[in-house]
Protein backbone atom coordinates (compact mmCIF):
# COMPACT_ATOMS: atom_id res chain seq x y z
CA UNK A 1 0.00 0.00 0.00
CA UNK A 2 2.73 2.41 1.02
CA UNK A 3 6.25 1.77 -0.19
CA UNK A 4 9.14 3.97 0.87
CA UNK A 5 12.54 3.04 -0.53
CA UNK A 6 15.94 4.52 0.30
CA UNK A 7 14.50 7.92 1.19
CA UNK A 8 17.02 10.65 1.90
CA UNK A 9 16.49 14.28 2.78
CA UNK A 10 19.21 16.79 3.58
CA UNK A 11 18.42 20.33 4.74
CA UNK A 12 20.90 23.11 3.93
CA UNK A 13 23.19 20.79 1.94
CA UNK A 14 26.85 21.78 1.49
CA UNK A 15 26.70 24.40 4.22
CA UNK A 16 27.99 24.35 7.80
CA UNK A 17 24.36 23.88 8.88
CA UNK A 18 23.90 20.76 6.79
CA UNK A 19 21.37 18.45 8.43
CA UNK A 20 20.64 14.94 7.29
CA UNK A 21 17.00 14.67 8.32
CA UNK A 22 16.39 11.31 6.66
CA UNK A 23 19.12 8.86 5.87
CA UNK A 24 18.21 5.98 3.57
CA UNK A 25 14.84 5.15 5.11
CA UNK A 26 12.89 2.22 3.71
CA UNK A 27 9.49 1.10 4.88
CA UNK A 28 6.70 -1.00 3.43
CA UNK A 29 3.14 -1.01 4.73
CA UNK A 30 0.48 -3.56 3.86
CA UNK A 31 -3.13 -2.47 3.43
CA UNK A 32 -4.66 -1.89 6.86
CA UNK A 33 -1.33 -1.61 8.66
CA UNK A 34 -1.41 0.86 11.54
CA UNK A 35 2.14 1.90 12.35
CA UNK A 36 3.06 4.09 15.31
CA UNK A 37 6.32 6.05 15.09
CA UNK A 38 8.34 7.18 18.09
CA UNK A 39 11.74 8.83 18.38
CA UNK A 40 13.53 11.74 19.97
CA UNK A 41 13.16 15.36 18.81
CA UNK A 42 14.71 15.91 15.42
CA UNK A 43 14.74 12.18 14.60
CA UNK A 44 13.10 12.88 11.23
CA UNK A 45 9.55 11.68 11.96
CA UNK A 46 7.80 14.80 10.67
CA UNK A 47 10.18 14.97 7.73
CA UNK A 48 9.19 11.44 6.74
CA UNK A 49 5.49 12.31 6.85
CA UNK A 50 6.04 15.60 5.03
CA UNK A 51 7.91 13.81 2.26
CA UNK A 52 5.14 11.26 1.85
CA UNK A 53 2.55 14.05 1.72
CA UNK A 54 4.55 15.89 -0.95
CA UNK A 55 5.34 18.88 1.20
CA UNK A 56 9.12 18.41 0.74
CA UNK A 57 11.05 16.91 -2.17
CA UNK A 58 13.26 13.90 -1.48
CA UNK A 59 16.94 14.18 -2.42
CA UNK A 60 16.90 10.53 -3.40
CA UNK A 61 14.75 7.47 -2.95
CA UNK A 62 11.14 6.84 -3.86
CA UNK A 63 7.61 6.79 -2.47
CA UNK A 64 4.77 4.79 -3.95
CA UNK A 65 1.19 4.66 -2.76
CA UNK A 66 -0.91 1.80 -4.06
CA UNK A 67 1.62 1.30 -6.84
CA UNK A 68 1.53 4.97 -7.90
CA UNK A 69 4.83 6.82 -7.79
CA UNK A 70 4.17 9.98 -5.78
CA UNK A 71 7.80 10.93 -5.12
CA UNK A 72 7.67 14.15 -7.11
CA UNK A 73 3.97 14.97 -6.84
CA UNK A 74 2.95 18.31 -5.32
CA UNK A 75 0.90 18.30 -2.11
CA UNK A 76 -2.46 18.87 -3.77
CA UNK A 77 -1.98 15.89 -6.09
CA UNK A 78 -0.83 13.51 -3.36
CA UNK A 79 -3.89 14.63 -1.39
CA UNK A 80 -5.98 12.35 -3.57
CA UNK A 81 -4.38 9.40 -1.75
CA UNK A 82 -3.54 10.89 1.63
CA UNK A 83 -5.50 12.19 4.61
CA UNK A 84 -3.58 14.22 7.19
CA UNK A 85 -4.01 15.60 10.67
CA UNK A 86 -1.47 18.14 11.83
CA UNK A 87 -0.12 18.69 15.33
CA UNK A 88 -1.49 22.24 15.48
CA UNK A 89 -5.29 22.13 15.97
CA UNK A 90 -5.52 25.40 14.00
CA UNK A 91 -3.85 23.88 10.96
CA UNK A 92 -6.46 21.35 9.90
CA UNK A 93 -9.53 23.53 9.46
CA UNK A 94 -10.55 26.81 7.86
CA UNK A 95 -11.36 29.05 10.85
CA UNK A 96 -13.79 31.36 9.04
CA UNK A 97 -15.61 28.49 7.42
CA UNK A 98 -18.47 26.72 9.16
CA UNK A 99 -18.17 23.12 10.30
CA UNK A 100 -20.28 22.00 7.35
CA UNK A 101 -18.23 24.04 4.88
CA UNK A 102 -15.03 22.49 6.25
CA UNK A 103 -16.49 19.03 5.85
CA UNK A 104 -17.61 19.85 2.31
CA UNK A 105 -14.05 20.86 1.42
CA UNK A 106 -12.79 17.54 2.76
CA UNK A 107 -15.51 15.58 0.97
CA UNK A 108 -14.31 17.05 -2.34
CA UNK A 109 -10.74 15.87 -1.75
CA UNK A 110 -9.36 14.08 -4.78
CA UNK A 111 -12.27 15.16 -6.98
CA UNK A 112 -12.54 17.99 -9.48
CA UNK A 113 -14.17 21.01 -7.87
CA UNK A 114 -16.77 22.75 -9.97
CA UNK A 115 -19.72 25.05 -9.61
CA UNK A 116 -21.93 22.73 -7.60
CA UNK A 117 -23.03 23.99 -4.19
CA UNK A 118 -20.46 23.11 -1.57
CA UNK A 119 -23.04 22.33 1.10
CA UNK A 120 -26.31 20.69 0.13
CA UNK A 121 -29.01 19.07 2.23
CA UNK A 122 -27.90 15.65 1.03
CA UNK A 123 -24.35 16.37 2.20
CA UNK A 124 -25.64 17.83 5.47
CA UNK A 125 -27.31 14.53 6.24
CA UNK A 126 -24.00 12.70 5.72
CA UNK A 127 -22.12 15.24 7.83
CA UNK A 128 -24.65 15.03 10.66
CA UNK A 129 -24.32 11.26 10.76
CA UNK A 130 -20.52 11.39 10.75
CA UNK A 131 -20.38 14.15 13.37
CA UNK A 132 -22.72 12.20 15.62
CA UNK A 133 -20.07 9.45 15.70
CA UNK A 134 -17.70 11.88 17.41
CA UNK A 135 -20.15 12.19 20.31
CA UNK A 136 -19.31 15.87 20.79
CA UNK A 137 -22.69 17.23 19.81
CA UNK A 138 -21.15 19.00 16.79
CA UNK A 139 -23.96 17.71 14.58
CA UNK A 140 -26.22 20.29 16.25
CA UNK A 141 -24.03 23.24 15.33
CA UNK A 142 -22.87 22.60 11.83
CA UNK A 143 -23.20 26.31 11.02
CA UNK A 144 -20.78 27.38 13.70
CA UNK A 145 -17.43 28.66 12.47
CA UNK A 146 -14.70 26.08 12.98
CA UNK A 147 -12.55 28.85 14.44
CA UNK A 148 -14.83 29.02 17.47
CA UNK A 149 -14.30 25.37 18.43
CA UNK A 150 -11.95 24.24 21.19
CA UNK A 151 -8.67 22.57 20.28
CA UNK A 152 -10.01 19.11 21.02
CA UNK A 153 -13.20 19.65 19.04
CA UNK A 154 -11.21 21.01 16.16
CA UNK A 155 -8.80 18.08 16.19
CA UNK A 156 -11.73 15.64 16.22
CA UNK A 157 -13.18 17.53 13.24
CA UNK A 158 -9.81 17.47 11.45
CA UNK A 159 -9.62 13.73 12.02
CA UNK A 160 -13.09 13.25 10.56
CA UNK A 161 -12.10 15.40 7.58
CA UNK A 162 -8.88 13.45 7.04
CA UNK A 163 -10.63 10.08 7.07
CA UNK A 164 -13.46 11.22 4.81
CA UNK A 165 -13.55 9.35 1.53
CA UNK A 166 -11.28 6.62 2.94
CA UNK A 167 -7.81 7.81 1.88
CA UNK A 168 -5.21 5.18 0.94
CA UNK A 169 -2.89 6.44 3.64
CA UNK A 170 -3.65 8.36 6.83
CA UNK A 171 -0.80 10.48 8.24
CA UNK A 172 -1.04 11.67 11.84
CA UNK A 173 1.76 13.82 13.22
CA UNK A 174 1.46 14.16 17.01
CA UNK A 175 -2.18 15.09 16.48
CA UNK A 176 -2.99 14.73 20.19
CA UNK A 177 0.09 16.53 21.51
CA UNK A 178 -1.54 19.94 21.88
CA UNK A 179 -4.57 18.64 23.81
CA UNK A 180 -5.22 18.20 27.52
CA UNK A 181 -5.11 14.56 28.71
CA UNK A 182 -8.88 14.01 28.58
CA UNK A 183 -9.20 15.46 25.07
CA UNK A 184 -6.09 13.59 23.92
CA UNK A 185 -7.68 10.40 25.19
CA UNK A 186 -10.87 11.17 23.27
CA UNK A 187 -9.09 11.94 19.99
CA UNK A 188 -6.97 8.80 20.42
CA UNK A 189 -10.10 6.71 20.83
CA UNK A 190 -11.70 8.35 17.77
CA UNK A 191 -8.53 7.65 15.80
CA UNK A 192 -8.60 3.97 16.66
CA UNK A 193 -12.30 3.82 15.75
CA UNK A 194 -11.86 5.55 12.41
CA UNK A 195 -8.88 3.41 11.40
CA UNK A 196 -10.79 0.27 12.34
CA UNK A 197 -13.95 1.31 10.54
CA UNK A 198 -12.35 2.33 7.24
CA UNK A 199 -9.43 -0.17 7.42
CA UNK A 200 -7.06 2.73 6.93
CA UNK A 201 -3.36 2.25 6.34
CA UNK A 202 -1.97 4.60 8.95
CA UNK A 203 1.28 6.23 10.06
CA UNK A 204 1.00 7.92 13.44
CA UNK A 205 3.79 9.89 15.12
CA UNK A 206 3.58 10.17 18.89
CA UNK A 207 5.77 10.92 21.88
CA UNK A 208 3.48 8.91 24.12
CA UNK A 209 5.10 5.45 24.38
CA UNK A 210 2.08 3.93 26.02
CA UNK A 211 -0.07 5.14 23.14
CA UNK A 212 2.49 3.89 20.63
CA UNK A 213 2.30 0.43 22.17
CA UNK A 214 -1.45 0.12 22.61
CA UNK A 215 -2.42 1.48 19.18
CA UNK A 216 -1.73 -0.23 15.89
CA UNK A 217 -0.08 -3.46 14.82
CA UNK A 218 3.44 -2.19 14.27
CA UNK A 219 5.82 0.24 15.93
CA UNK A 220 8.96 1.84 14.57
CA UNK A 221 11.53 3.89 16.42
CA UNK A 222 13.54 6.56 14.60
CA UNK A 223 16.79 8.18 15.54
CA UNK A 224 18.91 10.68 13.62
CA UNK A 225 17.15 10.07 10.34
CA UNK A 226 17.07 6.28 10.49
CA UNK A 227 14.65 3.58 11.51
CA UNK A 228 16.47 1.83 14.31
CA UNK A 229 13.84 -0.45 15.73
CA UNK A 230 10.85 -2.16 14.14
CA UNK A 231 8.34 -4.15 16.17
CA UNK A 232 5.32 -5.96 14.78
CA UNK A 233 2.65 -8.48 15.66
CA UNK A 234 3.06 -10.58 18.82
CA UNK A 235 6.41 -9.00 19.57
CA UNK A 236 4.77 -5.57 19.74
CA UNK A 237 1.91 -6.84 21.87
CA UNK A 238 4.36 -8.18 24.44
CA UNK A 239 6.58 -5.09 24.50
CA UNK A 240 6.41 -2.68 27.44
CA UNK A 241 7.31 0.98 27.90
CA UNK A 242 10.39 -0.19 29.80
CA UNK A 243 11.55 -2.15 26.76
CA UNK A 244 11.25 0.95 24.59
CA UNK A 245 13.08 3.12 27.11
CA UNK A 246 15.82 0.52 27.30
CA UNK A 247 16.11 0.59 23.52
CA UNK A 248 16.37 4.39 23.60
CA UNK A 249 19.18 4.22 26.18
CA UNK A 250 21.16 1.77 24.10
CA UNK A 251 20.88 3.91 21.00
CA UNK A 252 21.91 6.98 22.87
CA UNK A 253 24.91 5.17 24.35
CA UNK A 254 25.98 4.02 20.90
CA UNK A 255 25.62 7.41 19.27
CA UNK A 256 27.38 9.10 22.21
CA UNK A 257 30.23 6.65 21.82
CA UNK A 258 30.56 7.27 18.08
CA UNK A 259 30.39 10.97 18.78
CA UNK A 260 33.27 10.73 21.25
CA UNK A 261 35.32 8.39 19.09
Amino acid sequence: MLEVTGLRKVFFPDTPNEKIALDNVSLALDPGDFVTIIGSNGAGKSTLLNLIAGEFRADSGGIAIDGVNVTRMPVHKVARYVGRVFQDPMAGTVPHGTIEQNLAMALARGRARGLRMGVTNAKRAIFARELANLELGLEHRMRTDAGLLSGGQRQALSLLMATMGSPRVLLLDEHTAALDPARAELVTRLTAQAVERHHLTTLMVTHNMHQALTLGNRLIMMHEGRIIYDLAGEEKKRATVEDLLHQFEQIKAVSDRTLLA
Binding site: V75, H76, A79, G92, V94, G97, A108, R111
Partner: peptide, 21 residues
Protein backbone atom coordinates in the same frame (compact mmCIF):
# COMPACT_ATOMS: atom_id res chain seq x y z
CA UNK B 1 -19.78 26.39 -4.59
CA UNK B 2 -17.10 23.71 -4.19
CA UNK B 3 -14.72 25.88 -6.18
CA UNK B 4 -15.67 29.02 -4.25
CA UNK B 5 -15.09 27.31 -0.91
CA UNK B 6 -11.63 26.29 -2.13
CA UNK B 7 -11.00 29.93 -3.02
CA UNK B 8 -12.06 31.10 0.42
CA UNK B 9 -9.87 28.49 2.08
CA UNK B 10 -6.90 29.60 -0.03
CA UNK B 11 -7.00 32.92 1.78
CA UNK B 12 -7.86 31.47 5.18
CA UNK B 13 -5.71 28.36 5.50
CA UNK B 14 -3.66 27.57 2.38
CA UNK B 15 -1.83 24.61 3.93
CA UNK B 16 -5.07 22.92 4.83
CA UNK B 17 -6.76 23.37 1.48
CA UNK B 18 -3.69 22.03 -0.32
CA UNK B 19 -3.88 18.96 1.89
CA UNK B 20 -7.48 18.70 0.67
CA UNK B 21 -6.28 18.47 -2.91
Amino acid sequence: TDLGLALQATGDNPRMIQAQG
